[in-house]
Design a protein around this nucleic acid. Structure first.
Length: 645
RNA sequence: GCUCACGUAGCUCAGCAGGUAGAGCACUUCCUUGGUAAGGAAGAGGUCACCGGUUCAAGUCCGGUCGUGAGCUCCA
């Protein structure tokens, strides 16, 4: 028998007899510490192997260990299997199982069972999972031919598995078994269930089989797993922290916005404090756009239905639009987008190539009929204000304009403290308008601009809008959750439909290219993200109240009022709390309101004509005069400055 | 829209073998004028989301509607 060489990337190599298992090779080549942490290996060509796999020819591999992201994913995938085993054992071994993959922060498994799972079942399932984990059951891999595998699952009544097999191209299928539970699965898996030392069922939800709403609704159980209980605890703690930052909770507590049943779902009422923050954001936004060569527009909320027919919205977007209304026998409809209005303004004059690029922006409020189940706080609403803009340009200006947009986009996002993004370039969908040549040209322009800007991005095939390709930027908040706000879309549909043109240098009429873009996305969603990002403690430049004056007793009332007036005059956003309450109580309330500065005024301050400044983290600044305080607020509330207060 | 859960004072929640509602905070009034995260007392506030059914009797059981949440689908 010829020996084979097995080597570990960046490690030792050795000669073995063919048929040796990965586990044996690892045992021989690695320290016992390494061996204990190893779950699976990655072959030179990228394929993953279980420890139990046999090695028949020369191979180089790298270890996948419990401290890697990949290792965690394997654990969670295995946890899904264990959970399925537990569910079948506990309830009914004939429950049909669908799929059970790992996700970014855990895993799920979909079940088809007539009776609904209830949260009360969680404890029992968790206990059974623990029991299975404690039994150290090995994950055993076997393979079957297509025919055998199909027959095997058909015999067990597992119709979803049969469907999966029918849809896959493979000739050989692998099955994994632990205990009595057998699942169709590519693997790899943890060597045995004992690795599953920290497991938690998180929630239950419905999910369509294969994500298609025409299919059966299955019951999806979500859970998460870690290699040790400490990490699980940390994760659960993070979930708690995220809950505390929930914009719906903070929005209520800080009186930023409210949603009223009698007004309607998905319609946002901005309370004074939220409205003030919005105003600050909008002022900043307008200034930046002015600086970057944009002109501001205002357009109405409704338009004749005919306009939406011309624009194509009635063909492609009706389901997202509110129903039409009759006005003097003419049908009007609420706008779901601003673009047709901007085009109408374009058409108000004859245009020349010399005007290009035309950059028009608008904080335009649109209404979209979102399905009830999709609504969520500020993140998903039915009426929202987009920070919209449309750029009309020449074909050879396209790339530069996109580059400029990206530039402005990142600049604005950075101002709010967002420095990490996930960027996607979405290409032509199945249903599309325009020529393939145009699609190709604009997709290339988007790509070039991204590359020139040095931005890493992923291609999202087929996810473009029907009228053109787009760039989506998802921002990550402090907790690492991502939210889609920015979108940049090239459009050759609308210029065509409205037959807009410009006179070129050749004296002939040509069609301009149009770019749609929103940077913050919508004021509502962006505000929601901001609230969660800052945990409600807005930086000084955005804080609805920058300071609150707290007097100690009534004897300082006159002085307090004088300070209040003086600061207001100087443009400091200040409020006063002169209620007959103890200082402790007032401080507590100001702190909970997350106000950056508390100005404490007692007899000492009154006599010296100064204020004591307390920060929202509990620290005190040195006593200062009103003028000094004003000066400090001005200095520290520069746009985009995240002060340390 | 679909699945599951939930819907009690402005807010957070308790109530339950079905007998016609309770706490804390907030609010109002009074006492207290107190230096760095809750001083005290009294009062007011609810057709228990809405509609219908079962029952001698429903916040409590059943059905429907509306709304909210977690997801699915979809998206700024």
């Amino acid at each position: 028998m010829t020996e084979i060489t097995v080597s570990i990337k960046e490690g030792k190599a050795g000669k073995f007899n063919p048929g040796i298992t990965v586990a044996e090779a690892v045992k021989s080549l690695c320290s016992s510490k390494e061996r204990k942490r190893t779950l699976a290996v990655r072959q030179g060509d990228g394929e993953l192997l279980d420890l139990a796999a046999s090695v028949d020819s020369d191979m180089e591999f790298s270890l996948i260990t419990t401290d890697s992201a990949e290792g965690l994913k394997i654990l969670r995938h295995s946890a899904a299997h264990v959970m399925a085993q537990a569910v079948l054992e506990l309830f009914d071994k004939d429950i049909k199982v669908a799929i059970g993959p790992a996700t970014d922060d855990g895993f799920y498994y979909d079940f088809d069972r007539d009776e609904p799972f209830t949260p009360d079942d969680f404890a029992a399932i968790e206990e059974r999972v623990k029991k299975i984990a404690g039994a150290n059951l090995p994950f055993v891999r076997t393979t079957m031919s297509r025919v055998d595998a199909r027959q095997y699952f058909a015999d067990k009544g597992q119709k979803y598995k049969v469907e999966l097999i029918d849809d896959l191209e493979d000739d050989i299928f692998s099955l994994y078994q632990q205990g009595d539970f057998v699942d169709l699965c590519r693997g790899p898996h943890i060597p045995h269930t004992g690795f599953l030392r920290a497991f938690k069922l998180l929630r239950i939800a419905g999910a369509y089989w294969r994500g298609d709403e025409k299919n059966a609704m299955l019951q999806r159980l979500y859970g998460t797993a870690f290699f040790n209980p400490r990490e699980l605890k940390k994760y659960l703690h993070q979930l708690e922290e995220a809950k505390k930052r929930d914009h719906r909770k903070l929005g209520r507590e800080l009186e930023l916005f409210t949603i009223s049943d009698q007004v309607g779902p998905g319609l946002i009422l901005w309370q004074p404090k939220g409205a003030l923050v919005r105003k600050l954001i909008e002022d900043y936004w307008k200034e930046e756009h002015y600086r970057h060569g944009y002109e501001l527009l205002y357009t109405p909320h409704i338009a004749k239905r005919e306009l939406w027919a011309t624009s194509g919205h009635l063909d492609f977007y009706v389901e997202d639009m509110f129903s039409p209304m009759e006005v003097e026998g003419v049908s009007y409809q609420l706008k779901p987008m601003n673009c047709p209005f901007h085009i109408a303004i374009y058409q108000s004059n004859k245009r020349s190539y010399r005007e290009f690029p035309i950059r028009w922006c608008e904080l335009g409020t649109v209404y979209r009929f979102e399905r009830t189940g999709a609504l969520q706080g500020l993140m998903r609403v039915r009426g929202f204000t987009q920070d919209d803009a449309h750029i009309f340009c020449l074909p050879d200006q396209l790339e530069e304009e996109i580059f400029n947009i990206l530039d402005l986009n990142l600049h604005i996002l950075q101002t709010f403290g967002f420095t990490e993004y996930d960027i996607y370039l979405s290409t032509r969908p199945d249903k599309f308008v325009g020529s393939e040549k145009n699609w190709q040209r604009s997709t290339d322009a988007l790509k070039m601009a991204l590359e020139k800007k040095g931005l890493a991005f992923e291609i999202d095939p087929g996810e473009g809008v029907f009228y053109g390709p787009k760039i989506d930027i998802k921002i990550k908040d402090v907790l690492g959750r991502s939210w889609q706000c920015s979108t940049i879309q090239v459009d050759f549909n609308l210029p065509e439909r409205f037959a807009i043109s410009y006179t070129g240098s050749d004296g002939a009429e040509h069609q301009p290219i149009m770019i749609h873009r929103a940077l913050m996305g919508s004021m509502e969603r962006f505000f929601g993200v901001l609230i969660e990002h800052y945990g409600g403690a807005f930086p000084l430049w955005l804080a609805p109240a920058q300071a609150r004056i707290l007097n100690i007793t009534d004897s300082q009332l006159a002085f307090t009022d004088k300070v209040y007036q003086q600061l207001r005059q100087a443009g400091v956003r200040v409020e006063k709390d002169v209620r007959n309450e103890k200082l402790n109580f007032k401080i507590r309330e100001a702190q909970l309101a997350k106000i950056p500065f508390m100005l404490i005024i007692g007899d000492k301050e009154m006599e010296a004509g100064v204020v004591t400044v307390r920060l929202r983290d509990g620290k005190n600044l040195p006593v200062m005069t009103i003028a000094d305080f004003t000066e400090m607020v001005k200095r520290e509330s520069m746009v985009g400055l995240e002060a340390d207060f």
